[in-house]
């Protein structure tokens, strides 16, 4: 575990608030499960339990347990930090590019978007030279291309660049 974060004693969201928020989110998922199950029927029909029987009770248990977890979270005495802002910023700075990356895959194709992600990540976090970053960024997708498309014949999503090259 990293000690530096605690010793620095910076600012950040309180653990209690995040805990409450996340607990509510889990409860919401449970609620979704209940609603979805009600749509397909939760009874015990002619064919044994219906499609919604099992997920309905799972959802119900989630919601009930969430109530307990929520009470525990609200009662939480210690007012520690969930994480410091700079640390959270690091997390966000990975989540955002990764999200953009996965959203871009259907349009740019797996290979081009992967190359951009690798180059950007290496440049931004690793502070490597452009030359080195771009070299790795081209080498890795190229290796993957040969491994998947040529060798194992597993087609991955392709975009305009690949179709320009005839794939």
């Amino acid at each position: 575990m990293s000690h530096s974060a605690k010793e620095a004693g910076g600012a950040g969201p309180s653990h209690r608030n995040v805990e409450i928020g996340f607990t509510l989110f889990m409860g919401f998922l449970g609620l979704l499960s209940i609603i979805g199950s009600l749509q397909v029927g939760i009874g015990w029909g002619a064919e044994g339990p219906k499609a919604g029987f099992f997920p309905f009770y799972c959802g119900l248990i989630v919601v009930l347990s969430t109530v307990v977890n929520l009470i525990n979270a609200i009662r939480m005495q210690e007012n520690g930090l969930f994480a410091e802002w700079p640390a959270l910023w690091q997390v966000v700075s990975v989540v955002v590019p990764t999200t953009i990356y996965v959203l871009a895959i259907p349009y740019l194709g797996m290979y081009v978007s992967s190359a951009i992600l690798i180059a950007a990540f290496m440049k931004y976090f690793g502070r490597y030279s452009w030359l080195f970053s771009i070299a790795i960024a081209i080498a890795v997708p190229a290796a993957i291309f040969f491994m998947f498309e040529i060798w194992f014949l597993v087609p991955l999503p392709k975009g305009p660049v690949e179709s320009y090259l005839g794939y």
Partner: peptide, 17 residues
Amino acid sequence: SVIAPVILVLCAIGAYT
């Protein structure tokens, strides 16, 4: 910072396939 994006890419491929 070199291996992390490569892992992300491999994870994405894994999930896709």
